[in-house]
């Protein structure tokens, strides 16, 4: 894979223009490595954020913030450390976003005297439509299953949801999930197992 072809042109030109040859090589390698990492992780990270926040634009903002913070704070760290670090940042950002949203909702409710609930926001089916379509029958079945699964994951307690998504969607092992969640490995196992049980109960036997 020619990684340099996928890097932003300005970044490559700027890095290539550095004065020190050794430093330039290191910077280019780091940029390529980070590009590769982010490209690999970005879609799943977006889905994690989208399920947690139930809003496409908020999820995109959170993922971008997490990417930038990783580059700023940990870009020089070995690439094998990036995954748990990135997900730790992402989870913190999601948590901050949810807290801000709750505060905003309370203020709006107090100000208007109404009972506006952001949970009522329904996703736009056109906006969320899949781009790469499988066969129609499979697509229909998968869409129904995914819709039900999305709703069920949304109803999980926050920690169970985190453990489930980090392990199932992102594929982190127990230790990496514990690092990303800032808890013990035992807690991860418990949260994950309970999440699975809860999802099975919610989805029932008729889940396609």
């Amino acid at each position: 894979m020619n990684c340099s072809a996928t890097l932003p042109r300005e970044t490559l030109m700027s890095l290539a223009g550095q004065a020190r040859p050794c430093a330039r090589e290191t910077d280019l390698d780091a940029a390529r490595e980070l590009e590769r990492f982010l490209k690999d992780v970005e879609r799943r990270a977006f889905r994690i954020a989208e399920i947690a926040l139930r809003n496409t634009d908020d999820a995109l903002d959170v993922v971008q913030e997490a990417m930038i913070q990783l580059a700023q704070s940990y870009g020089a760290r070995p690439s094998e450390e990036w995954k748990p670090l990135f997900h730790r940042i992402l989870q913190n950002r999601i948590h901050d976003w949810q807290r801000r949203r709750r505060t905003r909702s309370r203020v709006i409710a107090w100000w208007t005297g109404g009972t506006r609930d952001e949970d009522d926001e329904t996703p736009d089916p056109i906006e969320n439509a899949a781009a790469d379509e499988p066969t129609p029958a499979t697509r229909l079945e998968n869409d129904q299953a995914m819709t039900a699964l999305d709703a069920a994951i949304t109803r999980l307690p926050a920690r169970q949801q985190q453990a489930f998504l980090l392990r199932s969607l992102e594929g982190l092992d127990v230790a990496q999930t514990a690092a990303a969640m800032g808890c013990s490995e035992g807690s991860v196992k418990t949260h994950y197992f309970r999440a699975l049980q809860s999802l099975r109960e919610q989805l029932g036997e008729h889940w396609p």
Partner: peptide, 13 residues
């Protein structure tokens, strides 16, 4: 978003 993150890396470099 990825390009914005890489631009940050460039600034740091």
């Amino acid at each position: 978003a990825r390009h914005a993150a890489l631009a940050e890396l460039e600034k740091r470099a």
